[in-house]
Simulated assay, not measured.
Amino acid sequence: MATVERNLVLVPGLICDEEVWAYPRARIAEVADCHYAPMNETNTMQGLAEAVLANAPERFAIAGFSMGGYVALEVLRQAPERVERIALLDTSSRGDTPEKSENREAAIADCEEGRFEDLLDRFVPLLLHHEHMSGHLAGGVREMGRRIGPQLFADRHRAMLTRSDSRDLLQNTDIPVRAIVGRSDALTSVAEHEEIADLAPRGRVSIVEDCGHMPPLEQPQTATALLRDWLIYD
Rank of each mutant, 00 (worst) to 15 (best):
E131L: 01
R85F: 00
G139K: 12
T173D: 02
D155T: 02
T97A: 07
G203E: 05
P125V: 11
L187A: 14
N172D: 11
R85H: 01
H132A: 14
V208P: 04
L89P: 00
R146S: 03
R163W: 12
I207Y: 06
S184C: 06
C111R: 05
D118W: 00
F153T: 14
E112G: 05
D210I: 00
M133D: 00
A138H: 01
G114Q: 10
D96E: 13
A154F: 02
R142N: 08
A154Y: 03
E192F: 05
H157G: 00
K100T: 13
T188A: 11
P201G: 13
I86Y: 08
D90K: 03
T173Y: 04
G135E: 02
L161K: 06
E99G: 09
A179I: 04
I196F: 07
R156H: 09
H193A: 10
T162L: 03
L120M: 15
R104Y: 05
F116K: 13
H129I: 02
D168E: 15
S164Q: 13
C211T: 04
F116E: 11
S101Y: 01
V177A: 06
A197K: 05
H136G: 10
Q151S: 15
L119G: 08
H136S: 14
K100G: 06
L126K: 10
R146V: 04
G203K: 11
K100S: 12
T188I: 04
L199Q: 06
T162N: 04
E84A: 13
T188S: 08
S134T: 13
G149L: 11
N172K: 11
L126G: 10
D168A: 13
D96M: 07
E143C: 00
R85L: 04
G140H: 11
M133R: 15
H129P: 01
D110K: 14
S206M: 07
R147Y: 06
D165R: 05
G145S: 13
H157R: 14
R146P: 03
D210R: 12
T162G: 02
A191S: 14
P98F: 11
T97G: 09
L187M: 15
E209P: 03
P125T: 07
R204V: 13
A87W: 03
T97V: 02
R178Y: 02
L120V: 08
L89Y: 09
G212L: 07
V205W: 01
L127S: 00
G135P: 00
E102R: 15
G139I: 01
A154G: 13
A200G: 05
G145C: 12
R104W: 08
T173H: 05
D174V: 06
S134G: 01
L89H: 01
L128D: 01
D210L: 06
I175S: 02
P176Q: 08
A186S: 14
H213S: 04
A200R: 06
E131H: 09
E143N: 10
D155G: 09
V124L: 04
Q171L: 12
E131P: 00
P201V: 14
I207A: 10
G212I: 03
S101C: 07
